[in-house]
């Protein structure tokens, strides 16, 4: 592991631990740390700020497997938040679900039998 990646890992550890612990209690807005009325551009910028710190590629040579797994889990959720909030129709749908207390927009679990 390179010095840069060690430093980065130490820097992001508290953020990763917090997000990972609260993953199922945070809305997409909270995951990206933006307000409910944030513009698409602001959402994009917020996602980029998160990605720079938390994208798995930025921790490619990280030896701490546990932290690495957490980073991976957290990043995928942040990416999901970005996808929904940066796609206007999905964001509208999400906002209405959020009012009903649903924190994630999930595909309907279709039951396939084989």
């Amino acid at each position: 592991m390179t010095m840069d990646q060690t430093n980065l890992a130490n820097q992001v550890r508290p953020l990763v631990e917090r997000l990972h612990r609260d993953l199922d209690r945070l809305s997409y807005y909270q995951l990206l740390s933006v307000g409910r009325t944030a513009s698409t551009t602001a959402i994009q910028q917020a996602f980029y700020r998160r990605a720079v710190l938390l994208h798995p590629d930025r921790h490619f040579r990280l030896d701490d497997a546990e932290l690495k797994a957490k980073i991976n889990t957290v990043y995928k959720r942040i990416s999901e938040a970005y996808r929904v909030l940066s796609t206007p129709p999905l964001r509208t749908l999400y906002d209405s679900r959020l009012l009903q207390g649903q924190l994630r927009l999930q595909q309907k679990d279709d039951e396939s039998q084989s």
Binding site: P56, N72, Y75, K76, Y82, D110, E111, S112, Q113, S114
Partner: peptide, 20 residues
């Protein structure tokens, strides 16, 4: 039945439930 749509940013994951 679509699991992961085209043009989805990676890494990504989707879960589906199957029954017998």
């Amino acid at each position: 039945q679509i699991l992961i749509p085209r043009n989805a940013q990676i890494p990504t994951e989707h879960t589906r439930t199957f029954t017998t």
